[in-house]
């Protein structure tokens, strides 16, 4: 029994890592210490003043997500660009891939808020949707 316990503690000491985070759940900005095992599983969260801090730390260490916003080119519109956002937060590591994917396409005027301008951006499974409207350019109609 005791031998097993020794091994367990030894292993744990060797393979855990600690991450320092600043909680963003509210303006307090608590400093969080998160202990992780070798498989990036959260073992403990300390420093949080409330439950939201615990949840933030666990999410941030295992699957950090970010809401993504950018712009997309518009063809034949009153404005050259339309603002876009990801319909859901996307993995943090995929932010620049989303920028690239969005920059590679162009929306066609007219654009309405909520229009899906790019489905499944950069393989995230999340769509890019318009967050503004762009009317058709008048001259473009005449041509």
């Amino acid at each position: 029994m005791s031998g097993r316990a020794d091994t367990f503690w030894q292993q744990r000491r060797i393979s855990t890592t600690t991450r320092e985070l600043t909680c963003v759940a509210c303006p307090m900005g608590c400093g969080l210490r998160v202990e992780l095992d070798e498989n990036n599983r959260v073992l403990s969260v300390a420093g949080n003043a409330c439950k939201r801090g615990d949840a933030y730390a666990r999410a941030e260490c295992t699957k950090p997500l970010r809401s993504f916003t950018s712009t997309m080119r518009v063809e034949g519109g009153e404005a050259p660009l339309v603002s876009v956002k990801s319909a859901e937060p996307v993995p943090k590591a995929k932010l620049f891939d989303c920028v690239k994917a969005g920059n590679a396409c162009a929306a066609k005027a007219p654009v309405a808020i909520g229009d899906v301008l790019l489905a499944n951006a950069a393989g995230t499974g999340v769509d890019l949707i318009a967050t503004n409207r762009v009317a058709k350019k008048r001259e473009a109609i005449a041509v």
Partner: peptide
Amino acid sequence: GLTRNIVQCLED
């Protein structure tokens, strides 16, 4: 600035 912005606009 908001902590959230320091983390998500700078630290990221």
